[in-house]
């Protein structure tokens, strides 16, 4: 780990723009935040705000081609993205990428994109509205193993820059930076600790996780809860760790040849037909079972054992987007009160 002092953030942005396509979270006119590509000419200020969509689309594309069939054989269609940097990505989303890295470790399409990416994390020093990252060990400070470079805001628009690995060190090579005294790391810890204290009480969530894992949540509770699930896939689309997908074939027929492309696209385990078979046998025909499985996947001990952490990173996007009021805070509160 190397620690530096950065006086002017734009120097780092310009330096990285010379090597990478740079994406950064930008607030739009409608006050929504989203990932947008930056140019040398146009650099938005860095903001520690959660974008509406996570960064998962950069690696696990919303839809992408897997292969083509030319009538004789099948050919892989791997993506070939240019090197890119996600500049100022927050700890919850970084934790989700680290989780997806494990899940997709042997998937060539995910890895083709992931290998091209430099992750520059940004510490949160103020809690966000729906977030509860400290409860699920995903923030507010960037976890070292999840980013190549970490940025921590200091006073007077100064920054602490931490390079966590060789990839980070290589990326800042040639940039004139002052080495920092280690006591800045202590200051960072204190600031992050202070930030953690400012998060609202999360006991509903921790207690509900225990109830969930102790088998204290009844089938009838899930059925009742599922009445409010519209099966809209808002939560699974925005959840940075959700990874279910479907596949489809697209035939392109021109005068003299026919090419068939097979694609994969984001799917949702909350759709009624997600597990329905050709025979119409459907193991998860009941909405309650689907909702239960979704939350079990996020907080169940069985999955914790596999990934060494919960499947939820505490970003709160499901709460924000759910039209039926069964996002994470609502569900966990109801588990505590009624299950």
């Amino acid at each position: 780990m190397e620690i530096y002092h950065l006086d002017d953030l734009s120097l780092l942005q310009q330096h990285l723009l010379a090597q990478y396509q740079l994406y950064q979270v930008v607030k739009n006119d409608d006050k929504q935040c989203s990932w947008q590509q930056q140019t040398k000419e146009r650099n938005e200020p860095l903001i520690a705000e959660l974008p509406q969509s996570s960064a998962k689309d950069f690696f696990f594309a919303e839809h992408e081609n897997l292969l083509i069939f030319n009538g004789e054989y099948f050919q892989e269609t791997l993506p070939t993205p240019a090197p890119f940097v996600l500049f100022g990505i927050l700890s919850c989303d970084l934790t989700a990428i680290s989780y997806q890295d494990q899940f997709f470790k042997d998937d060539p399409y995910y890895q083709a994109r992931r290998q091209q990416c430099l992750l520059v994390g940004l510490d949160c020093i103020k809690p966000c509205q729906q977030g509860f990252c400290p409860t699920v060990d995903a923030g507010p400070g960037v976890r070292e193993h999840t980013a190549d470079i970490i940025l921590h805001p200091l006073e007077n628009h100064q920054w602490l820059l931490i390079s966590t690995n060789d990839k980070g060190t290589e990326a800042i090579k040639g940039l004139s930076l002052k080495t920092c005294h280690w006591h800045f790391l202590t200051q960072r810890d204190l600031t992050l600790h202070q930030c953690e204290q400012e998060f609202t009480d999360d006991s509903d969530i921790t207690q509900a996780i225990d109830k969930l894992n102790n088998g204290e949540v009844s089938d009838s509770f899930w059925q009742q809860l599922a009445v409010q699930c519209l099966g809209c896939s808002g939560c699974t689309t925005l959840c940075p760790t959700c990874s279910c997908y479907g596949t489809r074939s697209i035939t392109d027929e021109s005068e003299d040849k026919k090419v068939i492309t097979q694609q994969r696209f984001w799917d949702s385990c909350l759709y009624e037909g997600f597990q329905r078979e050709a025979s119409f046998h459907n193991p998860s025909a009941e909405a309650g079972k689907r909702v239960q499985r979704f939350w079990q996947h996020k907080f169940g001990n069985e999955f914790f054992a596999e990934f060494n952490r919960h499947g939820c990173v505490g970003c709160g996007r499901c709460e924000q987007t759910c039209p039926g009021v069964i996002g994470v805070h609502s569900v966990m509160k109801r588990i505590n009160n009624n299950a």
Binding site: C244, R264, Q275, Q296, E302, F303
Partner: peptide, 18 residues
Amino acid sequence: ERRMHCAIGLCGHCYLNE
């Protein structure tokens, strides 16, 4: 038996509990 889209543990369709 379960519906499957990938057969390599990624697409999620064939889940049976964990």
